[in-house]
Write a protein that binds this DNA or RNA. Structure first.
Lengths: 94, 94, 94, 94
DNA sequence: AACGTTGAAATAGTTC
DNA sequence: GAACTATTTCAACGTT
């Protein structure tokens, strides 16, 4: 049931407050990032290239994650990994 | 001159490190926000409505800012505000 | 199947043409808007203020929309709106 | 002088109206463009690629413009073009 | 004319 | 998988 009539107004306010505070934090961090870009630019770096560097590193990180995932899949397929979902009977007598 | 060939590699690394750390922080906060939404949902709140509430509050906040800004503009246009360096023609009969 | 090898070149050309034509129209409109600003300025209006007025009206319009949306959400949440396919509990006493 | 007190309210309203109408038109065109993308997608085109095609054509168009500009510069440098800025007195007694 | 600011467009991610 | 939301990116604009 949807919380509206009654006492849950305080809870709602609490949720709203928390989230808005966190959004503020996020915004502050974003501004900080911008400052760093400015600083880099002031020191002669090409911001566009800097962004590209970061983007590539991001992709690489993902690749690594995915490849680890694939590795896990392989290992699991070969029965060399204890998988979370189907460990319904392995534990007691492993 | 663009800093990429040469000794500025350390600076670059420093910028990249800082930014990536901040990005991590942002992501953590975003996850935290999601948790709060989950919590609210678990307590029976309609997340869609909660989002709308937040959106409206955002718009209202911006509206308030804009209203203040335009008030300043009006006052200044009417010569009722001591603006920093805009007294170019007000002194018609000084 | 992705349409790029083969006979669909004409279709592609057609899409590209249509879109580019529309983009041209958009650009023309944008230029027209600029002309109006110029005209206003020439007639003694403070363009900055004019822009702010427009911005505030935009925000207000969006706010109104959001308010209506959330009203619908409220009403619906309270079971006071006949939603299209949300009659999950009406049938108890059919 | 800034138009505020008095009779210029109507003019202001007129400007606002015109601009907002044009903005609406722009938005409609943008929606139309989206529809075309949808249609293309429905017919099996990869929208991402379609966008890339458009982007490249845009760049090419710009390139052409810039190259024409450069060509103009060359021609002018070689004294083969009448330049805009300093043609204030050349025509009558060149 | 470069700079930062702002608004729009696009992409990625999430939810239903 | 379709729609919605959020984030990121890109371009335009005013400003200095």
């Amino acid at each position: 049931m949807v919380k509206f009539g009654g006492f849950s107004g305080e809870q709602l306010r609490s949720f709203v407050d928390k989230i808005e505070k966190l959004e503020v934090e996020k915004k502050q961090i974003a501004e900080f990032v911008k400052e760093i870009f400015s600083e880099a630019k002031a020191q002669g770096f090409d911001v566009k290239i800097l962004r590209k560097v970061l983007a590539i590193r991001k992709i690489d990180a993902r690749d690594r994650e995915e490849q680890e995932t694939i590795l896990d899949l392989y290992l699991h397929a070969l029965g060399m990994l204890p998988e979370s979902d189907d460990d319904d009977s392995q534990q007691e007598a492993a």
